[in-house]
Design a protein around this nucleic acid. Structure first.
Length: 424
RNA sequence: GGUGAGGUGGGUGAGUGGCUUAAACCAACGGUUUGCUAAAUCGUCGUACUCUGAAAGGGGUACCGCGGGUUCGAAUCCCGCCCUCACCGCCA
C-alpha cells in the first residue's frame, strides 16, 4: 500500500508507474489526495472540539467542588452542544477514512524504473538466457505424466478420488524424491544464512491483508469460513507476518527467513491452460525465502537471492532462464520481479519454478514493519521474497530431462537425500 | 465444550469515576564520578495522527486486549467479542 504523503510528493512518478503497469484506474490517485486532504481538515476540527470538551470537563469538576452548581450547569449545556457537533464530524471522518482506505488498497505498487512496459507474459524481458547445453532425449521419451504412470511415482486420478482435480498424490520413490528436494532446498537456504520456520498453514484475515493477498487475491485463496481463516497460497504470508507491527533496529538487518510449506491455490479461471500433469495444481510444496532489508540494500539483496535460486538449479543440472517481468505481468504488490523458468525437455516448454520479488515498502506499510535509524527516526523497511523453489515443476523437469531408457536418473546432489540413484 | 481468574508501557506491577500529565521498580540509552569487571549518581526513555517551524523543537488529539455504551468527565462502571491461564470434559 502506498502512503498518501508519498503520492502527494511524487504524483507524476506514481502516474507514470501505473501506466507502465497498464493500470487504468488512475482516477484513484486524485481521489486519494482529495480524501486525504478532507481527512486532515476534519481531524483539525475534531481535535479542537475535543480539546475544548476536555478543558471544560475539568472546569466542571472544579466548579462542582466549589459548589457553583449554576455555572457548572451552563458549562454542561455547552459541552452537550459540542458533543453533538463532534458526533457529526466523527461520522464524516469515519466515512472519509473508509473511502480512503479502500482507494489505497486498490492501487498497486509502483514498478522499479527497470521494469519494461507491456501487457502480457510475452512482453517479459529475458534477463539471463540459458547458454549451456539443452537436454537431449532419446527416441520414445515421454512427458512427466506418462512417466509417472509408468514408474508409479505420483497419481493424479487418485487425487481426484481423495479430493478433486489438481491434488496430486505422490507415491514410493516419487514421494521420497519430493521429500529429498524439500530437504535439499532447506539445507541450502540454511547454509545461505536463512533461519528456518515451520509456520501455520492457515492465516487470519489480518495476515492475508498485510502481505497483500487481500483484497487483491480474495478468490484465489481457500477460505475456511467457519473459522474465518485462509489456507496459505505461499509461505510468504505467515513468514513475512512474523514481523507485522514490529519496529526493528537498523542493526537488525538483514533478516533472512526460510520455510517449507504446502501452498493452496484455487486457480480459479485458469482451466484448460497448461494444466496437464504437475504443471498447475491446487496444492503444491514450496520452500520460500523471505528477507527484510534496509531500503538502501534491498536491490543488492534481490541480486543475492537471484544467485541463490540460480545456484539451486545449477546444482540440480536443470537448464533455466531468468525473466524480468513487464509492468502488466507484475504482481500487485511487487516493484520488481524476476521469474525463473526451467526447460522441460519432453514438453519442449519453459516452466516457471520461481518468482523473486522486491516489494520495497509496499508490504511494510500494511505490515507496519519499521526500523529506527541512527537518529532514532522510524522508516518503513523493505521486504523481499522468492521461491527456492516450487516443487511440482522441478519434479516434472527432473522426471522429463533425466529420463533414460533405463529409468529416471537422480541428480547427484539429491542422492544422499533419496538414498537411490535411479527410478526404474 | 463447561466453570473460574485475568489482559495496564520493552518487562514486573500499582491504580475501582476528576489530585493520572498512568506511580514505583527493572531493563535500555546518554552524562558525571571512581586507576579494571563493576558500583554510585543525574538525566532520557511509548505509538499513531495532526498543527506549527527551514530545522532543532513546540502545541493538540487518540490509544491501558478489541468494539460499543453510560457520564460534563472512564484504565476504572455496563454490554458484546477476542485472547491468556487454571481446573473439568473430549481427543491425535
Amino acid at each position: 500500500m502506498l502512503q498518501p504523503g508519498f503520492i502527494e510528493q511524487n504524483k507524476e512518478r506514481v502516474l507514470n508507474g501505473l501506466t507502465v503497469r497498464n493500470f487504468k484506474e488512475t482516477h484513484l490517485i486524485d481521489e486519494i489526495l482529495d480524501l486525504d486532504r478532507k481527512r486532515k481538515g476534519i481531524q483539525v476540527k475534531t481535535d479542537d472540539i475535543q480539546a475544548d470538551i476536555n478543558r471544560s470537563s475539568k472546569e466542571i469538576g472544579a466548579l462542582f467542588q466549589q459548589g457553583k452548581k449554576d455555572e457548572a450547569g451552563e458549562m454542561r449545556a455547552k459541552v452537550a452542544d459540542w458533543k453533538t457537533e463532534l458526533k457529526t464530524l466523527q461520522e464524516e471522518a469515519d466515512d472519509v477514512r473508509k473511502k480512503l482506505e479502500k482507494a489505497l488498497l486498490d492501487v498497486p505498487n509502483i514498478p522499479h524504473p527497470s521494469v519494461p512496459p507491456g501487457n502480457t507474459d510475452e512482453d517479459n524481458e529475458v534477463y539471463q538466457a540459458w547458454e549451456g547445453d539443452m537436454p537431449r532425449l532419446y527416441d520414445g521419451s515421454k512427458p512427466h505424466w506418462e512417466l509417472a504412470e509408468k514408474y508409479d511415482i505420483f497419481d493424479l486420478k487418485l487425487g481426484v478420488k481423495l479430493t478433486g482435480a489438481g491434488f496430486p498424490v505422490y507415491k514410493g520413490r516419487g514421494a521420497r524424491l519430493q521429500r529429498a528436494l524439500i530437504n535439499f532446498f532447506l539445507d541450502e537456504a540454511e547454509k545461505a544464512g536463512y533461519l528456518e520456520y515451520i509456520p501455520p498453514h492457515m492465516v487470519n484475515e489480518d495476515s492475508a491483508r498485510a502481505t497483500g493477498q487481500l483484497p487483491d487475491k480474495e478468490g484465489q485463496m481457500y477460505h475456511v469460513t467457519i473459522d474465518d481463516l485462509y489456507l496459505i497460497p505461499t509461505a510468504e504470508v505467515p513468514i513475512t507476518n512474523v514481523y507485522r507491527n514490529v519496529i526493528l533496529d537498523e542493526k537488525d538487518f538483514p533478516i533472512k527467513m526460510t520455510g517449507y510449506t504446502p501452498c493452496f491455490r484455487r486457480e480459479a479461471g485458469s482451466y484448460g491452460k497448461d494444466v496437464r500433469g504437475l504443471n498447475r495444481v491446487h496444492q503444491f510444496d514450496k520452500v520460500e525465502i523471505v528477507r527484510l532489508e534496509h531500503p538502501e540494500k534491498s536491490y543488492a539483496a534481490l541480486d543475492e537471492m537471484l544467485k541463490h535460486v540460480g545456484g539451486l538449479l545449477d546444482k540440480l543440472g536443470l537448464p533455466y532462464r531468468i525473466l524480468r517481468l513487464c509492468g502488466g505481468d507484475l504482481g500487485f504488490t511487487a516493484a520488481l520481479t524476476f521469474d525463473f523458468e526451467v526447460y522441460s525437455a519432453a514438453q519442449e516448454k519453459w516452466l516457471e519454478v520461481s518468482s523473486v520479488s522486491n516489494f520495497e515498502n509496499f508490504q511494510s506499510n500494511r505490515l507496519k514493519l519499521r526500523y529506527r535509524d541512527a537518529e532514532n527516526k522510524k522508516h518503513l523497511a523493505h521486504t523481499l521474497n522468492g521461491s527456492a523453489l516450487a516443487l511440482p515443476r522441478i519434479m516434472a523437469s527432473i522426471i522429463e530431462n533425466f529420463q533414460t531408457p533405463e529409468g529416471i536418473v537422480i541428480p547427484d546432489v539429491l542422492r544422499s537425500y533419496t538414498g537411490f540413484d535411479i527410478i526404474n
